[in-house]
Amino acid sequence: MLDYLRHAMAFDPVEQLRAFFVNTRRELIAEEQIARGGPSGVSVEPRQVLVRALALGATGVILVHNHPSGDPMPSPADRRFTRRLATAGECLGIQLHDHLIVARGGTHAIEVTALPAA
């Protein structure tokens, strides 16, 4: 999967966010580009991902986005988005399994940490 993502996204001159929607057995339901931005970012809200997950009947999501700069390290905005999506998804029964960043300089997984009990 990483080879596919690197080929498809690492050298794209604009940032994009893709989602892999899965069922309870983590079988792929669909892969879709959720948003496409510019060379320094993409504007997307967690609801855009979750609305599509609900429409597909997905119970899980794997997110992937690229960094045209070539640096795969997540920005503070990347980490905030990941946390917001994981929190909102938990409320809807949709698990964020992973959030990967692909770039010319490699790949990086943003840690999807367990949320504190309410």
Score class of each variant (00 low, 15 high):
L2T: 14
D3C: 04
D3A: 09
D3R: 06
Y4P: 03
Y4L: 12
Y4G: 07
L5R: 08
L5H: 10
A8I: 07
M9F: 15
M9V: 04
A10K: 03
A10G: 11
F11D: 09
D12I: 02
P13I: 11
P13S: 11
P13K: 05
V14E: 15
V14F: 13
E15V: 09
L17I: 14
L17Y: 09
L17G: 05
A19S: 13
F21C: 08
V22Y: 08
V22R: 13
N23F: 07
T24Y: 12
T24P: 10
R25F: 13
R25L: 15
E27Q: 14
L28E: 15
I29W: 12
E32L: 13
E32C: 08
Q33M: 13
I34L: 11
R36Y: 04
R36D: 08
G37A: 13
G38H: 13
S40W: 04
S40D: 15
G41T: 07
V42Y: 02
S43H: 12
S43L: 13
S43Q: 13
V44L: 11
E45D: 12
E45Y: 13
P46N: 11
P46V: 06
R47D: 15
L50W: 00
L50S: 05
L50D: 03
V51D: 15
R52N: 06
R52Y: 06
R52F: 09
A53R: 01
L56I: 03
L56N: 03
L56S: 03
G57L: 06
T59Y: 03
G60M: 05
V61K: 00
I62E: 06
I62S: 00
I62Q: 02
L63I: 10
L63Y: 03
L63P: 01
H67A: 03
P68E: 02
P68C: 06
S69G: 12
G70T: 00
G70R: 00
D71S: 01
D71M: 00
D71C: 01
M73P: 00
S75C: 03
A77L: 09
D78F: 07
R79M: 10
R80A: 11
F81D: 04
T82I: 00
T82D: 03
R83A: 14
R84L: 12
R84Y: 11
A86I: 02
A86C: 07
A86G: 07
A88I: 00
A88P: 04
E90Y: 10
C91P: 01
C91G: 10
I94E: 02
H97R: 11
D98K: 12
D98H: 14
H99N: 11
I101N: 04
I101Q: 06
I101C: 05
A103S: 09
R104V: 08
T107M: 11
H108F: 15
I110R: 02
T113W: 14
L115F: 07
P116T: 09
A117H: 12
A117P: 07
A118K: 09
A118M: 10
